[in-house]
Computed example of a mutant assay.
Amino acid sequence: MTEPSSETRRVVAVVVTFNRLTLLEGLLERLTGIDGLAEVLVVDNASTDGTGAWLASYDDPRVQARTLPENRGGAGGFHHGLAWAVERGADLAWLMDDDGLPDEDCLATLLRETDLDFWGPVVVDQDDPERLVFPIRLPGSTSVAHRVPDVERAARGGRLDGIVIPFNGVLVTRELVERIGLPREEFFIWGDDHEYRLRAEAAHARIATVPAARVRHPSVGELGTPMAFGRTTYNHSPSDLKHYCMARNNLVNLRTYRGWPHALAFVAKTLWFYTFTRPSPARIALSAQGMYAGLRGDFTGHGKYLR
């Protein structure tokens, strides 16, 4: 089947939100002003801050909203939203959380790439636009880029092939969704986006980051914290919920897509980080709980950390 041309492809934005109404207001104001965007589908994760009522009164036919019966996390939100976009006839789904703000030319810059399946912008600190919020391990290297110029130098032909940071302003084709399915909703948060990229990679999808396209995002703290005398980094989060899900989901991802040696290396890395880099017996115990749950296929334990 012949794919639609770049001029005729139906692009639908999918936004997942939870209790961040002020950020959502700014994001929808930006999205509804972007040419080439057919619709905006908002998945509300059972917010309790008035988001549902505000969306119900939103006066723009291009914006559609659904409120889920319970908070299903980013994973559940994107699982639901991506299926919805396909049902609505999207050729391309543009996926994002409520706390990112794409530059006005972000979509147009991404759409210049016509030979990709899964691609996105760099995500930069809203207070320091040269700093990456999500550091990027450069392909074929052990180097991790923390600033935009490092990514630009590594890019070839205006893009960094083989790497994408989902789900922060990424485009995914309908054809790829039909090939690999939807995000794993049981992951709740943290690792669901990485798993989707790994699944796309396993399906030989064409993946890239386009450094000229930008999404601005609040700082998320200590992602990529140096450890082991600066030889590697660790994604530390002060949130017990995020850490539990990260430990569980990352171990599952590594075991599934990289094999046991990589999974065991992650266990050792976690023990090192919370023994030497940031000593915390409580975090070691929490990590063990999450990892054991992942090995058992139990994706319910994060519920005890929800507030």
Rank of each mutant, 00 (worst) to 15 (best):
V124A: 12
I34L: 04
P149M: 11
R9H: 07
A46K: 06
G162L: 03
T275S: 15
P69A: 09
L41R: 06
R248E: 05
T232R: 05
G169I: 01
S47H: 04
L27S: 04
R184C: 11
H194I: 06
T300L: 07
I165H: 02
T233L: 10
E87K: 01
R174Y: 12
A53S: 07
S143L: 11
G77Q: 12
R30P: 03
L251Y: 15
D49C: 11
V170I: 02
V210L: 01
Q126F: 07
G76I: 10
R179L: 02
R20Q: 11
P61E: 14
M1P: 13
H204K: 08
R88V: 00
A145G: 15
R278Y: 03
E39I: 03
P61G: 12
F266R: 05
G52D: 11
P166H: 01
D161F: 00
F134G: 04
A38K: 13
T232C: 10
P149D: 14
T48C: 14
K242A: 12
P226C: 11
P121C: 02
R199E: 04
A285W: 07
D128Y: 10
A75P: 07
H194T: 06
T173N: 13
G303N: 04
V63W: 06
L160N: 04
S57C: 01
P166I: 00
T209K: 03
G297H: 08
L254N: 10
E25P: 00
G301D: 08
A208D: 03
A285I: 00
G120Y: 01
M227C: 14
G230Q: 11
R88M: 01
N45P: 09
R296L: 13
H204P: 00
I180N: 00
W260V: 13
T232H: 03
N71I: 08
D125L: 10
G181L: 11
L21A: 03
L27P: 04
A154M: 08
V11Q: 02
E178D: 14
V215P: 02
D103G: 10
L95I: 10
